[in-house]
């Protein structure tokens, strides 16, 4: 009895979950004249689908645990009369589990597709709105001709005697192809291969949509000059696709795997035109994976923009 009850409960949950996912994914995309606004809608749906996928997969995990418990109980149960009940429930539940797993995977795949679509549409929207301003659409490059100096504190982080391993394993080194020398390791700074280094990003809560690029000469693309203080432009639109004016913005940057941030304290010094902010005092002293964060306090929302750079 107990088993059947739980099957019913869980089935209800999944029905509700898929219903809400379907209703979201079928809402219309057309009829928007502002591409950033369209992108905002798509990205919201992508996020909703991702939430659904997470929920479904979480339920599936719970069900898998229930199944395992049930199988354990079946092994312990001596009464052969109940064996067929067990078999029936187990079969039902395991069908359900595989349906949920498939559904979770499908939802996630759709979410990823929508996410990509949304980003593409957003980029097109920015290029529409700020065609004369945007010179960079790919990842932020290093300026050409920069001598690649070595990392300032690769493998160095704040350690404490209580940190197991780090105090006894010696320095982290690595050996590059074709080298007999081993050199300080970049571990913890190697960007994951699928890292999103796009310069068009939505904020965490999808309130803002933004683009960054170095305000350096485009030769052929605007790039980051190593070890030199330079400026960036930060372009922000809201969910309606309108430029975000008068926002107060905090700028921070760090390298994952490091405890140290940027060597300078950059800040927004000017709004050049509505939604276009000048960020001054940017300086990167080494190549590698950097994360730039902009905390945007606008009139109605506070939200955070994150950009990954691999210099």
């Amino acid at each position: 009895m107990k088993c059947i009850q739980s099957v019913v409960t869980i089935t209800l949950i999944i029905l509700l979950a898929s219903a809400s996912a379907n209703s979201e994914s079928h809402s219309h995309l057309a009829g928007e004249d502002n591409l950033i606004k369209t992108a905002s809608g798509i990205l919201r749906q992508a996020k909703a689908l991702e939430n659904n996928a997470t929920q479904v997969l979480r339920d599936a995990n719970q069900l898998r645990q229930t199944l395992n418990q049930l199988r354990a109980s079946q092994r312990q149960a001596s009464n052969s009369e109940h064996q067929s009940d067990f078999d029936q429930s187990l079969s039902l539940l395991s069908d359900q589990l595989s349906r949920w797993q498939t559904e979770g995977g499908t939802l996630r795949r759709h979410s990823d597709e929508l996410q990509r679509l949304g980003t593409t549409v957003m980029e097109a929207g920015f290029l529409n709105t700020w065609s004369d301003r945007i010179k960079l659409t790919g990842p932020v490059p290093l300026e050409k001709g920069d001598q690649v100096s070595m990392a300032h504190n690769t493998g160095v982080r704040s350690v404490h005697p209580s940190m197991d391993g780090r105090m006894t394993s010696g320095a982290e080194t690595e050996q590059h192809q074709g080298m007999s020398l081993s050199v300080p390791s970049m571990s913890g700074q190697q960007a994951p291969p699928d890292l999103d280094t796009g310069t068009f990003q939505a904020s965490r809560q999808l309130h803002y949509f933004a683009h960054i690029e170095p305000a350096t000469p485009a030769e052929p693309l605007p790039g980051v000059p190593l070890n030199k203080i330079h400026q960036w432009h930060l372009l922000i639109a809201d969910a309606e696709g309108e430029p975000v004016s008068g926002a107060s913005i905090e700028v921070t940057g760090h390298m994952p795997g490091h405890v140290h941030g940027l060597p300078t304290q950059p800040r927004v010094t000017d709004e050049i035109e509505p939604g276009v902010y000048r960020v001054e005092g940017m300086k990167f002293q080494m190549p590698g994976w950097w994360v730039m964060q902009f905390d945007v306090a606008g009139q109605s929302h506070n939200d955070t923009l994150i950009f990954n750079l691999v210099l």
Partner: peptide
């Protein structure tokens, strides 16, 4: 250059990162 980790900070032609 490697196992002693000196070059992490003492690098470049002056063997310093100036930090």
């Amino acid at each position: 250059m490697g196992p002693a980790d000196c070059a992490s900070c003492h690098n470049g032609p002056l063997f310093t990162n100036f930090e």
